[in-house]
C-alpha cells in the first residue's frame, strides 16, 4: 500500500543521512510500524527546526533550557525555605511538596513530552501516580502517620 512504500522509500534516506562512520552494520533491525512512524517523523525532523507533525509543539533547545532554569530556581528556593523553615511554621511542608509537584510536572510535561504526546501515555503515568498517592495516603491514615499518637487507634 502506498504508505508502506512511502516509509520504505524514505527509510534508506533517513538512515543514509545519519550514518557517520560508514554503515559497517547493515542495521538490520526491522522497524515496526511504530518505528516506521518514527522514521517518517525523523524525516520530518530533518528540517532545520524540529517543528511540524503531531509532535510539532516540541519545545526548542532554548525552551528546554528555560525550563531547566526554572527547575533550578525552584530547587534553590526549596533549599532556601529549608533554612528559614522556622519562620514559616506549619505551612512549610505543604509549600515544599507543592514545589516538588511543580518540578515533577515540568519534567513530566516537557522533558518527558507528556504535554505533547499521545494521551494514552499520560493515562498510564497518571494512573500510576494517582493510584500510588491514593493508596499510600490511605495507608498513612491507617498507620497513623498524620496523627501524633503512633500505632493503632485503640
Amino acid at each position: 500500500m502506498s504508505d508502506t512504500t512511502d516509509a520504505a522509500s524514505e527509510t534508506p534516506t533517513a538512515a543514509g543521512a545519519t550514518t557517520l562512520t560508514g554503515s559497517d552494520t547493515p542495521a538490520p533491525v526491522p522497524a515496526d510500524p511504530g518505528e516506521r512512524h518514527l522514521v517518517e517523523e525523523a524525516v520530518e525532523h530533518r528540517r532545520p527546526t524540529p517543528e511540524g507533525g503531531e509532535h510539532g509543539a516540541h519545545p526548542t533547545d532554548a525552551q528546554y533550557m528555560k525550563i531547566a532554569l526554572v527547575l533550578a530556581a525552584i530547587t534553590a528556593v526549596e533549599v532556601a525555605i529549608y533554612y528559614v523553615k522556622s519562620d514559616l511554621g506549619l505551612g512549610f511542608a505543604p509549600i515544599l511538596i507543592t514545589m516538588a509537584a511543580v518540578k515533577f510536572f515540568l519534567v513530566g510535561a516537557f522533558f518527558m513530552h507528556l504535554r505533547f504526546d499521545n494521551r494514552v501515555l499520560r493515562r498510564f503515568f497518571v494512573t500510576g501516580i494517582v493510584l500510588a498517592i491514593i493508596i499510600y495516603v490511605i495507608v498513612f491514615l491507617l498507620l497513623g502517620v498524620f496523627t501524633s499518637t503512633h500505632g493503632a487507634h485503640s
Partner: peptide
C-alpha cells in the same frame, strides 16, 4: 513485496499491515 528495507516486516501484499508490530524489532 515492498522494496527491501529493514523497516518492513509485514511483507505480503500490504493487507497485513498491522501484523508488523507483532514482529517488532526490539531495540
Amino acid at each position: 513485496n515492498a522494496p527491501p528495507q529493514p523497516a518492513h516486516l509485514g511483507a505480503s501484499g500490504g493487507t497485513m499491515a498491522l501484523d508488523a508490530p507483532s514482529t517488532a524489532a526490539l531495540p
